[in-house]
Amino acid sequence: MSTVHVTPVRTYLLVFFALMALTLLTVGAAHVNIAHHLPGQMTDAINDAVAMAIAVTKATLVILFFMGVWHSARINKVVVWSSFFFLFVLFAFSLADYFSRGWLGVPGK
């Protein structure tokens, strides 16, 4: 507990306004069918992807600044990011099963 980094209020305000702006953006984006405005074959999933991308950005901002990870020791960073990595593994591997059903034409699989 030797040196604690004190973040200036300005940073917190900037992050706060960024979060608010991103919230407005994600609400706005949800009302637009993005796939219609892009060339080529795009599915509706693009809307979901955009919403999730914005959410990830916002979460990253909160973790880095409000939770102080930006200025914490390297070992803490490892702990934080590896936790999210395992959460990602849980989602990604489970979904991989659902998405890959029927690829090989085995009945019921």
């Binding site: 994600t26 949800a30 009302h31 069918n33 509706d44 999730m52 959410a55 916002k58 409000f66 939770m67």
Partner: peptide, 26 residues
Amino acid sequence: VGLYWHFVDIIWIFLFPLLYLLGRHH
């Protein structure tokens, strides 16, 4: 407590678009 509060924050950041926004464009 600050860490805890912000963690609950992050959950909402994901819940909000997932539950309220997805599918709106239809």
